[in-house]
């Protein structure tokens, strides 16, 4: 099973490939692809709490405590930001969540709350 994709890996690859070009280029690239996106998991009355926690642990590699905290947030607040990163990354996570049957969406992180309400992987 896939474990957590290192944050910024998509950008990092390109930066490495472009080390010979002007620094300005890689900075511009980073700005384009590093706009933070959130992966949101929504509550539903069907998915088992134990299963949701298991998915957070086994897919993201989160500790049991962290997985349970996120799962309870989904359950009580209706939604939780369970990961964030570049758009391509959170989209990849969303497909994985859909594979598990969890109801997940991606959204652009709001500038005010960016990185604050979402746990860091």
């Amino acid at each position: 099973m896939t474990t957590t994709v290192a944050t910024g890996s998509f950008a990092a690859v390109d930066v490495e490939e472009r080390t010979d070009t002007a620094e300005q280029t890689s900075t511009a690239h980073l700005t384009a692809s590093d706009v933070p996106w959130n992966l949101v998991v929504w509550n539903d009355p069907v998915n088992l709490m134990s299963y949701v926690s298991f998915v957070f642990q086994s897919y993201f590699g989160y500790s049991e405590a962290k997985a349970n905290k996120l799962m309870l947030e989904v359950h009580r607040k209706g939604r939780s930001i369970v990961a964030h990163g570049a758009k391509e990354q959170v989209e990849q996570h969303a497909v994985a969540m859909h594979g598990y049957g969890l109801w997940a969406t991606v959204e652009k992180a709001s500038s005010a709350g960016a990185g604050k309400d979402g746990p860091r992987g």
């Binding site: 969303a94 859909h98 997940a104 969406t105 959204e107």
Partner: peptide, 9 residues
């Protein structure tokens, strides 16, 4: 639709 949900709200 629940099995194949929309990725954006």
């Amino acid at each position: 639709l629940r099995l194949l949900p929309n990725v954006m709200k």
